[in-house]
């Protein structure tokens, strides 16, 4: 299952400075999208709000389940499940911890934990109650996917910035997110690692039904990776490219 995103009139200000102005976008599940714009255009803030890590001042973020929710609402509520609002076409999911755990955001600086590479990747599984052997087995697979399995017992802080970014992606994909946000994944990465990361993203699209949203200021990268690109300028989504 994958999630579609519907952002409606998102506004956000910091200390009176407007960062996002009425940003609206509707993204189907399972696609790769890029969010292009210069530094300071509001891309990172928009991603954090879409990833439910920040509240907008105004506007709504709705996640839509796909395929549409079938059982009658009364039946689902009687089971005590999180439903949100059900429309005739799909279900708008409730913004709670359950929904937050279906997506993840890879930050530009990644935020590597001061432990081994393997334990970094297994973290997201362990906080979901998965026991160590099972978590480490899945972490191994994720590390293999990003080409870092040979470094699984290394101290994560000794990785290069390109490897750290790949570790961030492994840490994200191991939890099987239905929506994956990547904030400038190749901003401080050399050419070789940029190519590896782009391949990982494209393989992710091939192998899994994950909606991927990438913030970048590199138009050629946007073209290589995504079927559709949104353009942000001064806190507004000004159009679509491609």
């Amino acid at each position: 299952m994958s999630l579609g995103l519907n952002a409606i009139n998102i506004c956000k200000s910091y200390n009176g400075r407007s960062v996002l102005k009425d940003c609206s976008v509707s993204l189907d599940s399972g696609g790769i999208y890029t969010l292009m714009g210069a530094n300071g255009s509001g891309k990172s803030t928009f991603l954090r709000i879409c990833a439910l890590l920040e509240q907008p001042d105004k506007g709504e973020i709705n996640y839509l389940s796909d395929p549409p929710f079938c059982p009658p609402l009364s039946e689902v509520e009687s089971r005590g499940e999180s439903t949100g609002r059900v429309t005739s076409e799909n279900t708008i999911l409730r913004n709670d911890m359950g929904l937050k755990r279906r997506m993840t955001l890879v930050l530009p600086g990644v935020g590597i934990f001061n432990t081994t590479v393997l334990k970094n990747v297994a973290y997201g599984l362990k906080i979901r109650g998965i026991n160590s052997p099972a978590a480490e087995e899945k972490a191994d697979k994720a590390l293999e996917f990003v080409g870092l399995l040979h470094k699984k017992n290394h101290a994560a802080l000794t990785l290069s910035s390109g490897e750290a970014q790949r570790l961030g992606i492994a840490r994200a994909i191991v939890i099987g997110p239905e929506v994956l946000f990547l904030d400038e994944p190749t901003a401080s990465v050399d050419q070789e690692n940029t190519e590896i990361i782009e391949d990982i993203i494209l393989n992710l699209r091939k192998d899994k039904m994950t909606t991927v949203i990438i913030a970048t200021h590199d138009i050629s990268q946007a073209e290589r990776l995504a079927g559709a690109a949104l353009v942000m300028r001064n806190g507004k989504i000004t159009g679509k490219a491609f």
Partner: peptide, 22 residues
């Protein structure tokens, strides 16, 4: 960024605090 990274991976506020303490 450690706190933010924990949150992005789905940690609850308590799990996030534990990770920061770690």
């Amino acid at each position: 960024i450690i706190k933010q990274a924990s949150q992005t991976l789905g940690a609850t506020p308590f799990q996030t605090s534990l990770n920061v303490m770690r």
